[in-house]
Nucleic acid binder design. Structure first.
Lengths: 348, 348
DNA sequence: CTGAAAGCGCTTACAG
DNA sequence: CTGAAAGCGCTTACAG
């Protein structure tokens, strides 16, 4: 082990510059009340010495962590393949790095561990604020964050009253556009493979589907709820395609399920999109390279992350950012959607 | 804003228990030299007061961050779809949470930003050690970590001499098994869509491919280098399939490229696996649900993360863990590989 | 077994 | 414009 050369502290700088520690601190932080000459001398000495601020010491004196917390709750199976979080995190970092903030990430298997993770993060004062993603109905995290007195930002509006700013993206628009597109293509039997009803975006996308169907004068009777996993997508597709009056189009609540659904359909000999149209959600880039290329709803997760980070930073700084609405999710038609096949002869 | 009720400190505990702060600290940390009765009293008072240790204060006095750093270098395009990091991180967290450690994550777009991120992480003393993943040839991070005097663990063995423990998984075995499998199925023209040569696992998988081909007495003349992106996989497949002596099987260096390659092949009317066999790498769960289900090489990224975290923690604790070899990557045959098609009539 | 004190490296009133 | 001092909340020799 090479001996650790101890890092210079402001005391070293002060001594060498012949001033007090306090003055060094003022000069370094660009506070007013230091004459230009002494400031320059102090800065010069700091540079010579290779002084670097101790975040730890600052953290203790100003009572800040200079970090934001993200906890992701996913069973390990589902985490892979979902394009949302990697992009979201990249967007968050784009905002944090220049601000000198760090991201502390917690990945937990279930909701119990999730609450514990938030508690731990703020008990340890590891972060100055937290992201609340994947909102659920009656989400306990809103109350918890309030109780812990930690700044937070929610992705989307929680159902329960929330003191925290929300950064929302209208995903209804994307689902509706998908349904409208299919209806225009002549589809009448359209199914929806939904996310879990306990998740707000799961049930919201489902409601958007139902509303769009209602507007088109069609029954929304073909809906199956899932856990967002690829395997669920395959299973749901099997169940939907089994009956004689099977749908001619399926709207999936995420891309991995749509890809698995596509696989299942092809496996049974159905041609996509000739026999069956399919749409995904979230725009994984692999979907673009499938055959047929997956029609999907693009969500700009990175932009969402960047804005959420900015809002959280502002609310930590004591501002009251208010809610912000991102541009709505966009339907991206590709190859997996086509005109409905001619209806089979009505028999019976 | 509800008024922040100030958290009790050890000074409060000490006062209430009628002892000194030092003694409280000893009792709380289970140090010897505190009589059982006073220890119990102190613990009791701490509980009554709802005392929680200040990680910040501890960090400053013991000069530790109680956190590990992971920096991921990816252009935003590629990050989505790759199943490795989400699983790896889940494994890391499985180890860190019980140890009271946190993960600070940095996502950067290129190698320059990557080095800056490592520097910043240790300059700020945000972490006690760092993971070095996705090793490259002449990887500057080894030297940087040594220079910064920060404990590190590498995923795999770097080429340059390294003072850091390595946690390795033999990915050669998986590639070789894939090639052997294809050879046994009668394939003679086998191509490889490789990762970037500057990345160690990119070139190592390529070499494994070449070696396996050589052992089978086959030329490894069909290799195209890529950047690991899905789009690259499609492009490479197009280039490979264009000439008259196109391969009957393609071994891809990751799953997203294999999926895109599958899509491209199907698009041109080739039947997979009848006309063309395909294998991936890393085992995304979506691959399992494609039609045909993707034969791939499974890597146990979560286990890798857990072991790497444990090793890094031990080396921070001053042990010298030494290198560890994980079970080799396993080839998982599914549906995308089948006997080679009968050779076309030799003409010319 | 216990106490009093210094130290970790900053920031921030308070005085001059 | 500048200095001396206290404080953030712990840990850790050093004495007894």
């Amino acid at each position: 082990m090479p001996a650790e050369r101890p890092r210079p502290t402001i005391a070293d700088v002060a001594e060498r510059a012949g001033v007090s520690k306090g003055l060094v601190s003022f000069a370094l932080n660009g506070r007013p009340g230091v004459s230009p000459q002494t400031r320059d001398r102090i800065l010069e000495v700091a540079r010579e010495l290779g002084w670097q601020p101790s975040l730890r010491a600052r953290a203790l004196s100003v009572n800040r962590a200079f970090a934001l917390g993200l906890v992701i709750t996913r069973d390990p199976e589902i985490i892979t393949g979902d394009p949302f979080y990697p992009s979201f995190i990249a967007g968050v970092e784009r905002e944090l790095a220049p601000a000198g903030q760090a991201l502390v990430l917690s990945v937990v298997p279930d909701e119990e561990a999730e609450l514990a993770a938030y508690r731990k993060l703020v008990a340890d004062r590891r972060v100055d604020g937290v992201f609340i993603t994947d909102l659920r109905h009656d989400d306990a995290r809103i109350e918890l964050a309030r109780e812990l007195n930690v700044p937070a930002v929610t992705l989307g509006h929680p159902e329960t009253p929330s003191p925290f700013p929300a950064v929302s993206m209208d995903d209804r628009a994307g689902i509706e556009a998908a349904v409208d597109h299919l209806v225009r293509l002549g589809h009448r039997r359209i199914a929806h493979v939904a996310g879990p009803a306990r998740m707000l975006h799961g049930s919201r996308r489902r409601r958007a589907f139902e509303d769009a169907m209602a507007r088109a004068g069609l029954p929304a009777d073909l809906v199956v709820e899932t856990d967002f996993r690829a395997a669920d997508g395959a299973r749901a597709t099997r169940d939907l395609l089994a009956p004689p009056d099977a749908p001619t189009a399926i709207v999936y609540a995420n891309d991995p399920m749509a890809i698995a659904g596509l696989g299942f359909a092809q496996r049974t000999g159905l041609r996509v999109p000739d026999d069956l149209s399919i749409t995904g959600f979230d725009g994984s880039d692999v979907g673009e390279h499938l055959f047929p290329a997956l029609s999907t709803v693009a969500t700009e997760a990175a932009g969402w992350g960047a804005v959420a980070a900015r809002v959280l930073l502002r609310s930590i700084a004591g501002e009251e950012p208010g809610d912000t609405d991102l541009p709505p999710a966009r339907f991206v038609p590709r190859e997996s959607t086509a005109p409905a096949p001619p209806s089979p002869p009505a028999n019976g």
